[in-house]
Design a protein around this nucleic acid. Structure first.
Length: 953
RNA sequence: GCGGGGGUCGCCAAGUCAGGUCAAAGGCGCAAGGCUUAGGACCUUGUGGCGUAGGCCUUCGUGGGUUCAAAUCCCACCCCCCGCACCA
């Protein structure tokens, strides 16, 4: 069979019949779902396919459940990575060219990639084709990109709304910056794709003559423990004027300061050594401390001025010790050795497991030799964490005494900044990081950055309210959403470069990509009309959106009819029933999605559900450019076919887990589908079931099918797709195999056909092409995609038939076990069936247990029964032997036995004797245990209800 | 650190919320048999240990506890992965 041909055939038919185009139909319930639209900067790979396939499966399922399903798609052009890529290609970046080539982009196409729009357009098409080839049931009439003028108008409207609510703020904001490109840098702009991490140092202004020496620290709370200042004597320093104040900093920090303060002027350069031996005043407590030399001081880190806290900083402790042991360096700077006596460590923090001088203890523990020992770094980190987490400020810290370190740090920082005794200094802390142009990344503070204030209290409350009403699948993620709503603060919502919508009131800024993609689900509902009627963007005024989405006002730019159509379509499909994305978008997009909806729309239009899925691994490893293990989706499509890919991606793990894709997985799924297909075809011509001729085994099979339907349906409702696939492809097929082993009549063909027809429907959301093909082969004229989902037929549920089949299976199992262990090749098998009184006792015990009799009292209670007691010690022995069995029996099974009552085992086994004899290739005898005349090994007394005693010879 | 997810019989992975059909689904791998000129594919069986009677013993990150009964509930601890933002 040719998967690809089948797929093309049905994709064409779907398209021609336009079955996935959804319009409002007032008489039909709607189901509206969307998935995060893709960013078209590289070919789609199988990792992307998971989220989209899951969404499509859900869409198809809901469609079969009778909903008018809308599943639209668009493309997110907004952002800077595409821009960065085109720049790299402009400069002939070989690495990127190779990467594109390896992902199958033709060379002549790559040459057009010097324009960012060409990149977006090319991959847009690639992504779209991939989605179509995967068979996604998307309504393509609603497609748009985020740089379409009409969409820009929509985003402008959204931002006006946010500003009206006072959710937009302005402030300063530090970002990674390339001083030669004069541009912000993100991960995609740096060599090695390193994300610059920005750390906030507090530069405490120690008073030095008429100037300041700003010591940069991450631990401002240690200000009380300062014994001296460290300067690197080998380094150039400089006196500069910052906002009218004279400060001394390392020369190499000046450039950085200029990007963080508006007014930085160099006065003169100074040798580091010239500062040594002078004194400064601690602005916090007024103590006078000396300036001393230390070679560990890095002029490239922050201000190049370091305050020394020997009790709590291993480097400082070591540097002082080094100084003490090298008196010649003291002399070199004309220092009197008496100065060292003033350098006694001042302990200001107490931490449970640390001694009086914590830095010293850590140094000794780790065996750090001196200030240049790499282990000093490790010691610093360890102490930093310990004190931060468990430390408490000692009495010598004034008003901060008794405070926990993490709190004191915030308080002291605030005090220092507010009283102008310190300033913030941002530094790239995981540096050096280089821009692709070669320059070192520094921090730039933008003074007029626009933010969306997700920190707003009332807004958070609304978001929480929305979340609490929403269905979150899987529910484990709910807690994470709650936490994220709590954490969110201001989010910089615009940037200087990239594709996107200009901020309407300040067009020097482009609205950033996570901010222009929060409520576009609403836009899809009218995108169809905008596309079909080719509505000019200029006509889409804020008043139009106010009317369409909020029902407010009376806009004049569009005619009434169009406006009403839009309003109607929006109100029909909104609120959104289900939003899908990978779990990586939980802390940003999905949460912003909630926030923006509650900000703009009335409660009745808030989204109802979020579905989150894990990512896809390739052969157990993360897919990445560097590993070169990214498989473009369209390439995989050609290798395996759409149905195989769909099933493989969704069947390898449950929702939240990472799915592990591999060639062997795809192959095995492919052969499984093939098997399913061939098997189903064999029965396509069978006649319908004649219900008058159903035997016990038929009824069992039909009953199993009913159970399958309800199990699969339940799984689909909460998107446990792995389970659903598993039930249909494995469990059901197992049952069918058993069924066919048991049966050999024509009637069986009809039962199998019925079963497969159900199975084809249940599998249709996952492997739609294959199932359409089979559906057609089964003689149906309709699309299975539009067929109704199977429902449980109560009249076919047959507990007794299932119990009997279970009984036969367990008899076979037990017999096989004995044959295996003894190594006998049987010539005759005897089954001694439990007599009535045992059944009665058995049922009595179950009844008692179900009535709530304590397990410990069970035996005693059962012995109260007249009939049981009449059997005397035999009964006691029997009860004892079955009590464990009954106690450990699951509740469902107990209920089942009670409802069915005693099973006529003799009759049942006799009915199946031919089967058993054939199975074991020997004679089978069935006897009631109390009538056993031939019982050479005294097995008969072991008989238990549903477990006949067995003797094999 | 904070927050989230996870640790199950060679590997992957269900089971955990609602304790008992759990020596624990399924897939892969492996082994034996069938099929085949051979290989592949396919089918059957087996795959913790012991066992000439359907059984017994040990096991679900570690250590305690609750219970007639714990992979599942409670407590403590160890380890792995991810996020902590301006980036799609």
């Amino acid at each position: 069979m040719d998967f690809r041909a089948i797929e093309e055939k049905w994709q064409k038919k779907w398209k021609e019949a336009r079955i996935f185009e959804a319009n409002p139909e007032e008489s039909k319930p709607k189901f509206y779902l969307t998935v995060a639209y893709p960013y078209p900067n590289m070919p789609q790979h199988i990792g992307h396919a998971r989220t989209y396939t899951l969404t499509d499966v859900y869409a198809r399922y809901k469609r079969m459940r009778g909903y008018n399903v809308l599943f639209p798609m668009a493309f997110h052009y907004t952002g800077t990575p595409i821009l960065a890529q085109s720049k790299r290609l402009q400069s002939g970046d070989k690495e990127l060219i190779e990467q594109f080539k390896s992902l199958g982009v033709p060379e002549e196409v790559i040459t057009t990639f010097t324009s960012p729009i060409s990149i977006a357009k090319y991959f847009h098409e690639d992504l779209k084709l991939g989605m179509q080839e995967m068979g996604y049931s998307i309504d393509w009439r609603r497609e748009f990109t985020t740089i379409d003028p009409a969409y820009n108008k929509f985003i402008e409207w959204q931002f006006y709304k946010l500003r009206e609510k006072n959710y937009i703020t302005k402030g300063s904001h530090p970002i990674g910056w390339c001083p030669s490109c004069k541009n912000p840098v993100g991960q995609h702009d740096t060599k090695g794709d390193a994300e610059p991490e920005i750390g906030e140092f507090i530069s405490i202004k120690f008073i030095f003559e008429d100037k300041y020496l700003p010591a940069a620290t991450l631990r401002p709370e240690t200000i009380f423990g300062v014994t001296n200042i460290w300067i690197n004597p080998e380094v150039e320093y400089a006196e500069v004027l910052i906002n009218g104040e004279k400060v001394i900093v390392s020369e190499s920090s000046i450039e950085k300061l200029k990007h963080q303060f508006s007014n930085v002027v160099l006065i003169k350069k100074i040798k580091g050594s010239s500062l040594i031996g002078k004194y400064v005043i601690n602005p916090m407590d007024g103590r006078k401390v000396p300036i001393l030399p230390a070679e560990f001081v890095d002029p490239n880190n922050a201000t190049g001025v370091v305050m020394s806290v020997p009790a709590h900083a291993p480097y400082d402790f070591l540097a002082i010790r080094d100084l003490q042991s090298h008196s010649e360096s003291l002399k070199k700077y004309g220092l009197d050795s008496s100065i060292l006596s003033s350098l006694t460590p001042i302990t200001i923090i107490r931490t449970p497991e640390l001694s009086r001088i914590p830095a010293q203890e850590i140094i000794e523990k780790l065996g750090v030799k001196n200030q240049m020992d790499p282990k000093a770094e490790e010691a610093t980190k360890e102490l930093y964490l310990k004190e931060f987490n468990n430390g408490e400020m000692l009495p010598n810290t004034g008003e901060y005494a008794g405070m926990l370190v993490n709190r004191a740090r915030e308080e002291i920082k605030r005090h220092l900044l507010e009283s102008n005794k310190a300033f913030k200094f941002y530094e790239v802390i995981n540096g050096p990081i280089y821009c692709r142009c070669g320059s070192k990344i520094i921090v730039n503070v933008l003074g007029d950055q626009w933010f969306i204030n997700y920190g707003n209290r009332e807004w958070k409350d609304l978001a929480r309210e929305c979340l609490s009403q929403m269905n979150i699948i899987p529910d484990e993620m709910r807690k994470e959403f709650e936490n994220i709503i709590d954490w969110l603060r201001e989010k910089a919502c615009a940037r200087r470069a990239g594709l996107g919508t200009p901020l309407p009131w300040d067009r020097n800024w482009i609205i950033e990509s996570l901010s222009d993609s929060t409520i576009y689900m609403a836009y899809y509902t009218i995108a169809r009309i905008i596309n079909e009627e080719k509505i000019e963007a200029s006509l889409l005024t804020p008043e139009v959106f106010d009317y369409v989405f909020l029902g407010k006002g009376n806009p004049s730019s569009l005619n009434k009819e169009t406006l009403e159509k839009m309003r109607k379509e929006f109100l029909y499909f909104y609120p959104l029933d289900s939003r899908h994305s990978g779990r990586d978008l939980v802390p940003n997009h999905l949460t912003f999605f909630i926030f923006n909806h509650v900000a703009i729309f009335p409660k009745e239009l808030w989204p109802k559900q979020i579905v989150v899925n894990g990512s896809v691994l390739m052969e157990g490893r993360k897919m990445s450019k560097s590993l070169g293990n990214i498989i473009p989706l369209r390439k995989a499509l050609r290798t395996y076919g759409a149905d195989t890919l769909r099933v493989a991606i969704l069947s390898s793990s449950e929702l939240l887990q990472d799915a592990d894709f591999s060639d062997s997985l795809a192959r095995s799924i492919k052969s499984k589908l093939q098997e399913f297909y061939n098997f189903a075809l064999e029965y396509s011509k069978a006649p319908p079931i004649d219900k008058n001729y159903l035997d016990q085994v038929d009824r069992w099979m039909l009953s199993r099918v009913q159970r399958l339907i309800s199990q699969v349906t339940l799984a689909m409702e909460s998107l446990r797709v792995r389970e659903a696939i598993h039930l249909v492809l494995f469990i059901l097929m197992q049952d069918l195999q058993w069924y066919l082993k048991r049966k050999n009549s024509d009637n069986a063909k009809s039962v199998v056909k019925y079963t497969m027809e159900v199975a084809i429907k249940l599998l249709a959301p996952f492997a739609p092409h294959l199932c359409e093909e089979l559906w057609e082969a089964y003689g149906h004229k309709s699309f299975i995609s539009m067929e109704s989902w199977p429902t449980l037929d109560e009249s076919l549920v047959d507990d007794k038939a299932e119990a009997i089949e279970g009984f036969i299976k367990s008899v076979i199992e037990d017999s096989s076990e004995i044959i295996k262990v003894t190594g006998i090749s049987p010539s005759r098998i005897y089954y001694y069936v439990a007599p009535n009184w045992k059944w009665n006792a058995y049922i009595k015990m179950i009844q008692l247990l179900e009535e709530g009799v304590d397990v410990k009292m069970l035996l005693r209670e059962a012995m109260k029964d007249q009939e049981i007691r009449s059997k005397g010690s035999m009964a006691a022995k029997f009860l004892n032997s079955i009590s464990q069995l009954i106690i450990t029996m699951p509740k469902d099974r107990r209920k089942q036995i009670l409802s069915i009552g005693p099973l006529n085992e003799i009759e049942t086994l006799n009915n199946n004797r031919a089967f058993l004899e054939n199975y074991f290739k020997c004679e089978v005898k069935i006897i009631s245990a109390d009538l056993a005349e031939y019982d050479p090994k005294n097995k008969a007394e072991q008989a238990i209800p549903l477990r006949p005693a067995i003797y094999i010879e």
